[in-house]
Simulated assay, not measured.
Amino acid sequence: MNPGSDAAYIAFAGDRCIASGELRQVITAAKETLDRRKDASILVFDGRTGGPIDIDFRGSVGEVLARLPEIPGAPAVEVFPAPRGPGRPKLGVVAREVTLLPRHWEWLARQSGGASVALRKLVDEARRANKDKDRIRHAQEAAYRFVAAMGENKPHYEEVARALFSGDAERFRAWTASWPADVRDYARRLAAASFERAVTHENVAG
């Protein structure tokens, strides 16, 4: 099977990809594989984070699916909606506690629109400024979680990890060349976004 990097979830039996797609679809395929091969080693990965998720495969397919969490690995966050004032539009605003030093509050109070508006502007500016860095870091972390789980005992594991974090796409591809095809291809797809900036800069320089 050709593992796609945009799959929400992906399952491997040993080094072979057996399913990719939505969680229930992937878990069903994984459970069917385990029922046919009791000694199969199954790992299911979250395609967004690259990390393995814990699945209890005991019982029937229905029982396994019934035990699935809604969003595996996602921390529970309690959100308190901010009270609405007269005529206040529904902007999806949520109230959270923010701890700052007095000089920070003084500066925020002097800004147009008050502290809340100023904080939102600062966050948006930081998000825009760090967009590429955040995307690259996320891709590196996702690829490394997968590589650490599936490639630790594979040839050149340490070289692969170093190439990933140094942004060296050529070496990453070279060191993963001898890996099993499904593992190699999925690792490369997860890592691809972390190499995009370097490629873009090289093209501009050329």
Rank of each mutant, 00 (worst) to 15 (best):
N153F: 12
R88Y: 04
D54P: 00
S116N: 15
E78M: 15
R171D: 13
K154T: 09
V147K: 02
A163E: 04
W179A: 02
G206S: 07
A66T: 01
A8W: 08
A74W: 08
W175H: 08
F12Q: 08
A148F: 14
V79M: 12
E152I: 04
A7Q: 06
A181P: 00
V183F: 09
A19E: 13
A192G: 11
R135I: 15
D35C: 01
A193N: 12
I10T: 09
A205N: 11
A11C: 07
R24M: 04
L108G: 11
A115K: 06
D35G: 06
P155R: 07
E106F: 00
K31T: 14
V94W: 12
A149L: 06
Y9D: 00
S116K: 05
V77F: 08
P72H: 11
D185C: 01
C17H: 14
Y9M: 10
E106G: 02
R84E: 09
I71D: 08
W107I: 13
E70C: 02
A19N: 13
P72E: 06
D54R: 15
R67K: 15
E97K: 14
E32M: 08
A118Q: 01
G47F: 09
S166R: 13
A139G: 07
Q25I: 04
A191V: 08
W179G: 01
A139W: 12
A40G: 04
G113R: 10
E70G: 02
A205H: 06
G167V: 05
I55S: 03
A139L: 12
N203Q: 11
F80S: 14
S5H: 06
P52Q: 11
S112F: 03
C17Y: 12
S60Q: 03
D134R: 15
R135L: 13
V117I: 09
D185M: 07
A191F: 12
